[in-house]
């Protein structure tokens, strides 16, 4: 039983440097390979729809006909599954987190569906 064994700790705190990070005045560099905002490099996308099928949250919709890649960023759980399964590596997580929003948002990206590879993609989809 001791009285005030915390005293040395708090005194040390008082005289040593505070541990508060000065966010938002200084923003820390994100660690490498951090799973921040999900980003689709739409030029690379072949609209195969693998990401949409594998997504545990089912937040991605791919419209192969119109070349639409739609993601509900508010339902995305940043697990990295889509990034892993993407055959063209067009999906990746940025280091920084997705900025906050004042209203509902949808990520809707329009690209050109690759005509040539259409069959391959369909085959891929069928294989799954």
């Amino acid at each position: 039983m001791r009285l005030g064994p915390m005293v040395p700790t708090v005194v040390k705190n008082l005289i040593s440097k505070k541990s508060t990070r000065p966010y938002p005045f200084v923003v820390r560099e994100p660690f490498p390979d951090q799973r921040g905002e999900l980003y689709c490099d739409i030029e690379q996308c072949i609209f195969c729809g693998t990401c949409a099928r594998k997504c545990p949250s089912q937040c991605i919709t791919v419209d192969k006909e119109q070349g639409l890649w739609i993601c509900d960023p508010f339902a995305c759980v940043y697990c990295g599954t889509c990034e892993e399964v993407c055959p063209t590596h067009c999906l990746h997580h940025k280091g920084a987190w997705r900025p906050v929003a004042g209203e509902r948002q949808m990520i809707e990206m329009k690209g050109t569906p690759p005509k040539k590879k259409k069959k391959d993609a369909a085959k891929d989809a069928a294989a799954e």
Binding site: M6, T9, N13, F31, D33, Q34, G80
Partner: peptide
């Protein structure tokens, strides 16, 4: 309260390890 803050301050180091090695702090 001070003890609460102290433990959570220490915990942030572990969170950093999590973040740096897995890409996310919590999940």
């Amino acid at each position: 309260e001070a003890l609460f803050y102290q433990f959570w301050k220490i915990r942030e180091k572990v969170m950093d390890i999590n973040e740096a090695t897995t890409g996310n702090r919590v999940i």
